[in-house]
Computed example of a mutant assay.
Amino acid sequence: MMKQLLYAEFVKIIKQSKTYYALGAIAVIELLIFITAYYQGSTILDLLLNTLRQNFYFEGTLLNGNLILYIVLNSLWFNVPLILMIVTSGLLTDEHKDGTLQTVMLQAVKKWKFILAKYITAALFTLLVIAFMMLSTFALAYTIFGTGDLVVYIGTLNFFEADEAFHRICWAFASGSIAMVFYSTASITLAIFIKEASKTWIASALFLIITNLLLKADFLPAGFNTFFFPKLIDTWQQLFNYKVDWQQVGINNVMLMLYCAAFAGLGMLVFQKKDIG
């Protein structure tokens, strides 16, 4: 039964137009980043490194594919998760709107399996989108701008040689994909509570904004940061510290996966007890 449910969910997400609008929106974001970098990237870098150029000699160009990839990664803060939340929440809100949910529930389908299939589909769809985003950006960035050393600003300017930058970017995409799955999971849970598509989108945007605001909040005890999910969503950014605390990165990602399971568990519990009508 679960295989049939998963197949049905994948057919739905492939056929719905929102899926392709989402991929198109991500492609547009990438394109805008490429255009801006191509025409203004050197100017921005000159402003950033003006003081350093007075004391150091830089060989080669720092406006390269690795820098473009890092800039694209920064769309994981808001743009990409919002798009993903809108699409994945539609797996449930569309069925409420069309009335097909009641029809499905009249069949010999267990409610927990039905909603679990949606969570799994949302997670797999999210991973596929991030993979598409990663591969397309890698191909275009290296083709147009070539490779080279990476400079990023995280409190201080950090420099990484091309090979090390490539590996850090790959790990950052992997870590960022877990954060995106978390947001997709949260959107399904919100859809269970709210039902209506437009209200779920607003709630998803609000959830995303609040999470990002709490990420920057400093009023919480330091030891609480390891367990509070808003403090975990920037784990991919920690991979660009000069010295990476790999143990902390691993703990953060495991905690995020546990939060995904907790949000999914909450949604399944509520859906199991909720009257579908």
Results as ranks from 00 to 15, higher is better:
Leu116Ser: 10
Ala117Leu: 09
Ala117His: 11
Lys118Ile: 03
Lys118Asp: 08
Lys118Met: 07
Lys118Phe: 08
Tyr119Ala: 06
Tyr119Cys: 04
Tyr119Thr: 04
Ile120Pro: 12
Ile120Arg: 13
Ile120Ser: 12
Thr121Gly: 06
Ala122Ser: 14
Ala123Lys: 09
Ala123Val: 10
Ala123Asn: 05
Ala123Leu: 12
Ala123Arg: 11
Leu124His: 13
Leu124Met: 15
Leu124Thr: 14
Phe125Arg: 06
Phe125Thr: 11
Thr126Gly: 09
Thr126Met: 12
Thr126Phe: 09
Leu127Arg: 00
Leu127Asp: 03
Leu128Pro: 01
Leu128Phe: 10
Val129Thr: 05
Val129Ser: 01
Val129Met: 05
Ile130Cys: 06
Ile130Gly: 00
Ala131Gly: 04
Met133Ile: 03
Met133Lys: 02
Met134His: 04
Met134Asn: 10
Met134Val: 03
Met134Ser: 11
Met134Gln: 10
Met134Ile: 02
Ser136Val: 02
Ser136Pro: 00
Ser136Phe: 09
Ser136Ala: 12
Thr137His: 00
Phe138Glu: 08
Phe138Gly: 02
Ala139Arg: 05
Leu140Gln: 08
Leu140Glu: 06
Leu140Asp: 00
Leu140Ala: 15
Ala141Arg: 01
Tyr142Phe: 15
Tyr142Leu: 02
Tyr142His: 12
Tyr142Met: 04
Thr143Asp: 12
Thr143Tyr: 14
Thr143Leu: 14
Ile144Leu: 15
Ile144Asp: 08
Ile144Ala: 09
Ile144Val: 15
Phe145Glu: 03
Phe145Ile: 02
Phe145Asp: 00
Gly146Trp: 03
Gly146Met: 08
Gly146Ala: 13
Gly146Arg: 06
Thr147Glu: 12
Thr147Trp: 05
Thr147Gly: 15
Thr147Cys: 06
Gly148Asp: 03
Gly148Ser: 10
Gly148Asn: 02
Asp149Glu: 14
Asp149Cys: 02
Asp149Val: 05
Asp149His: 10
Asp149Gln: 10
Leu150Phe: 01
Val151Trp: 03
Val151Leu: 12
Val151Tyr: 05
Val151Glu: 06
Val151Met: 14
Val151Ala: 13
Val152Met: 02
Val152Asp: 01
Tyr153Glu: 07
Ile154Asn: 13
Ile154Thr: 06
Ile154His: 08
Ile154Arg: 13
Gly155Trp: 04
Gly155Thr: 08
Gly155Phe: 09
Gly155Lys: 07
Gly155Tyr: 08
Leu157Ala: 13
Leu157Arg: 07
Leu157Lys: 11
Leu157Ser: 14
Leu157Thr: 11
Asn158His: 14
Phe159Gly: 09
Phe159Val: 12
Phe159Ser: 05
Phe160Asn: 13
Glu161Thr: 08
Glu161Pro: 05
Glu161Leu: 03
Ala162Arg: 12
Ala162Lys: 15
Asp163Arg: 15
Asp163Ala: 15
Asp163Ser: 15
Glu164Trp: 07
Ala165Pro: 03
Ala165Glu: 02
Ala165Asp: 01
Phe166Lys: 07
Phe166Asn: 10
His167Ala: 13
Arg168Phe: 11
Arg168Thr: 07
Arg168Trp: 06
Arg168Asn: 01
Arg168Gln: 01
Arg168Glu: 13
Ile169Trp: 05
Ile169His: 01
Cys170Asp: 12
Cys170His: 08
Ala172Gln: 00
Ala172Thr: 00
Ala172Trp: 00
Ala172Leu: 03
